[in-house]
Amino acid sequence: MSTVLPVIQAELAANSFIDFDEKLAAYGVELRAAAVDTLQVNAVGYGIEGSGLILDLVYNPVGAFLPPPQASIEADFKRELATRYGISFNHLYTITNMPIRRFLDYLRRSGNEERYMRKLVEAFNPGTVQGLMCRTMVSVDWTGRLYDCDFNQMLELEVAAELPQTIADFDPETFARRRIMTGPHCFGCTAGSGSSCGGAVAVSA
């Protein structure tokens, strides 16, 4: 259904619903604007049941820990955002923080890198593998170069050398059976309930 309806993904970077006020203060104007924007899109029908207009939120933990179960945190956010701020939405998707770039810098600065990586590895869930985005999608940069996912693109880790390297030479059949380039960051997508742009991906615990 959501594929034919307008979808707005509003990223609400709060680590919990009751800390929302603190996060508003911490993130300042940007997050205040997100809350105001959310109310404004509610006002025109997004996230309102029966309107046919979808408002989905994305949650990622602010820290070196895994996100809570998606269903339970979605229920918490729906209840608390509605009672505290009058905000309503359709779905909340949980996303695991990937140990790359700025978050990796944070892990290193805070002495959490080893602990977080161990947490991801120990939480490896084979039930996530079938739903991983890299199995059915590719990322394309502005020059047309191909990557197995957004994170590989950020790391400039291109698709395997034996594959066509640009969108101009893209072949769906070859790519459907391709060898996917992996790194330690891949444990971010396979930990616990799994992680993707559409939230948790695990089919079994």
Binding site: F17, I18, G63, P67, S72, G192
Partner: peptide, 13 residues
């Protein structure tokens, strides 16, 4: 403390 955060608890709770 870690388990609570990953279960969706916040600092107030």
């Amino acid at each position: 403390s870690q388990t609570c955060l990953e279960a969706g608890s916040n600092m107030e709770q």
